[in-house]
Design a protein around this nucleic acid. Structure first.
Length: 239
DNA sequence: GTTGAGCGTT
């Protein structure tokens, strides 16, 4: 017994599922087990993770055998700092198959007639098989929005300095990276971000020069002859 | 190496 949920859900008929949020990306079910096991009988612990990268998504599901124990765990572990991060424990609102859940217990097992709640997010696209199938003009709107924002960020970046909005907008870097890996849309953005580079550097000759391979640099360090052949460098150093 | 709103697998 090293890992929970290794063989799928054991029995979710009389178990109460707890949703643990804010857990660290490196926290495993085994790490959460002792914390929750102290407050009741833990039937199973499952941490959803990316199928490609295998990284944890940042939350876990803890199933208790009794509701009172689960409630106690929620009251005691909610706000508990684990692995340097404050976790949030609460009863699960949705079941494994999006069934209706009451107090963590599944009261419905056939959600075929149930409409989906607006819980979908960017991180939900981790299921490549699903998102690839449903990728229509619906997601096109996101692409257009993303490009528009990125272009704006580039515009401001080379204009003067980086903005705090950049740090906030770089949230789903991983998700974006996965998408642009299989997409050729990057070509359209390449010349855009490469243009300002050429404009910013008035001396394109000193660009492709690693360390110690440039004799010109050695000459300058040896005696500093400052060849007047280059106007950009000469003007900068002389003045 | 990073990230941080949310609801899940054989």
């Amino acid at each position: 017994m090293s890992r929970f949920g290794r063989t799928g859900p054991p029995d979710i008929t009389d178990t109460y599922s707890l949703l643990v949020l804010n857990v660290t990306f490196r926290t495993t079910a085994d790490d959460l087990f002792p914390y929750f096991d102290k407050y009741g009988k833990v039937v199973d612990i499952f941490i959803p993770r990316n199928r490609r990268t295998g990284d944890s998504r940042g939350f876990a599901f803890v199933r208790y055998k009794y509701a009172d124990e689960a409630q106690k765990a929620v009251d005691r572990l909610d706000g508990k700092v684990i692995d340097g991060r404050e976790i949030a424990v609460q009863f699960a609102k949705y079941g494994p198959n999006a069934e209706r859940i009451q107090k963590g217990r599944i009261i419905e097992s056939s959600p075929r007639s149930r409409s989906r709640s607006p819980r979908r997010r960017h991180r939900d696209d981790y299921r490549d098989q699903d998102y690839r199938r449903g990728r229509s003009r619906s997601l096109d709107r996101y692409d257009r929005d993303k490009y528009g924002r990125e272009r704006d960020y580039l515009h401001r970046s080379r204009s003067r300095s980086v903005s705090p909005d950049y740090h906030r907008a770089r949230g789903r870097g991983r998700y974006y990276d996965e998408h642009r890996s299989r997409s050729h849309s990057m070509d359209s953005a390449s010349p855009i971000r490469r243009s300002p580079s050429l404009h910013r550097s008035p001396s394109p000759q000193r660009s492709p020069s690693p360390r110690g391979q440039n004799p010109d640099r050695l000459s300058r360090e040896g005696r500093s002859p400052t060849p007047l052949g280059i106007s950009s460098r000469g003007r900068s150093a002389d003045t």
